[in-house]
Design a protein around this nucleic acid. Sequence first.
DNA 1: GAACAAATTGAACGAATGCTCATATTAAGT
DNA 2: ACTTAATATGAGCATTCGTTCAATTTGTTC
Lengths: 210, 210
Amino acid sequence: MTASATLRSRRRPVQRRAQQTVEAILDAVIRILKRDGFEAVTTNHIAEVAGVSIGSLYQYFPDKRAIFAALHRRHVGEIDRGIQTALIENAAASLEDLVRALVDAMIDAHTSDPGLHELLMTEVPHRADDTQEFAVRLHGAFRLAIAARTGELMNVRDLDTAAFVVAHMVDALCHGAALRRPPNLGLAAAKREIANAVLAYLRATPAQAA
Amino acid sequence: MTASATLRSRRRPVQRRAQQTVEAILDAVIRILKRDGFEAVTTNHIAEVAGVSIGSLYQYFPDKRAIFAALHRRHVGEIDRGIQTALIENAAASLEDLVRALVDAMIDAHTSDPGLHELLMTEVPHRADDTQEFAVRLHGAFRLAIAARTGELMNVRDLDTAAFVVAHMVDALCHGAALRRPPNLGLAAAKREIANAVLAYLRATPAQAA
DNA sequence: GAACAAATTGAACGAATGCTCATATTAAGT
DNA sequence: ACTTAATATGAGCATTCGTTCAATTTGTTC
């Protein structure tokens, strides 16, 4: 064991080939999941599909769980990057433009590899932390977006409530639109409709919501 | 093997004690899931917690998967019953009342045993059919609700699109409200807010969504 | 109360899985 | 070139898991 090794972590990849080994392992998990389902995801099979020996696998992951955790971190990180970019690029934009940008980022994240997100969420076990951090970030993004424009939104009484509603709407609808969109609804139209639903909620008059 | 036995099904419980055995098995799975997580859900352990022999378990379930499938069917059936009831009881009611009733039914289904729904969805493997049937039903329920009132809803251009949006909104928001509601948002208030969001979307004027 | 069917039992088995470790190979540092 | 650290290898071990089956107990039917 290395000096900095604990019970949980193993050797950290420093050379390029080692980093490639780690990436190959994570990619192999996805390949197996898509082809044969979760039951086929065994450590020996992962190593085989990754083109790596089982020994190498256990150099970088203390156990099977750690592989799944790393996979989730990588995936959530990718989506989060898109969200944060949209947030920064549209910091001064109108509410409408910001909402559309965030919906765009979410849809893009789900359509680059459709089904991957759902696969990871439904089939790969994960602790609450792995995913909930992303929910918190999305909530935070919308909280920020709404807070800066409270003046024009008469229906927003409580900031956290509004952010809660909007974040859940966007997450579920973007996910659904990427995978189970009704046949007569194109992707671009879906983006517009989702953004419109969000704006309708935020801009609603008390009369419409009573 | 019995006369009507196929490769997939086994003996069907006809006596009361046998039905109790089956129920005890399904309940045991939930108990183990809550206490020790999915890894601890082994067939022998299920039988032990259910207070039943492993042999009895395999009289009613051809394999481990079948237990999970039955568990999902039972759970989805319970939620669906609430939805259908709300739909029938409010067939002639106003859009507002119907939406509130459906939100109510969904929230109640999630709060009777908070966490159970998420547990089953995230930890217990299931084929798409097991869950998607419910999504189709929820979509159908809202499709029906909206179709009967298209006159007053100027923002609804396509029925399936509107049903798609609303069904996903309600599902995600009710689920989220039951489990990850912000601290300053009570259950009753959450119900109101969700219904309001749905109504705001359906009743929005083109001006609000542009 | 026999005769039959339904339900229950649990020890045991083959197969598979997660993981280790002693050894070999490749790159980095000097 | 030589030393040292990093990386890779894969046969094999201990364990566990899903499932079977022959035997037993309980309920039903007439």
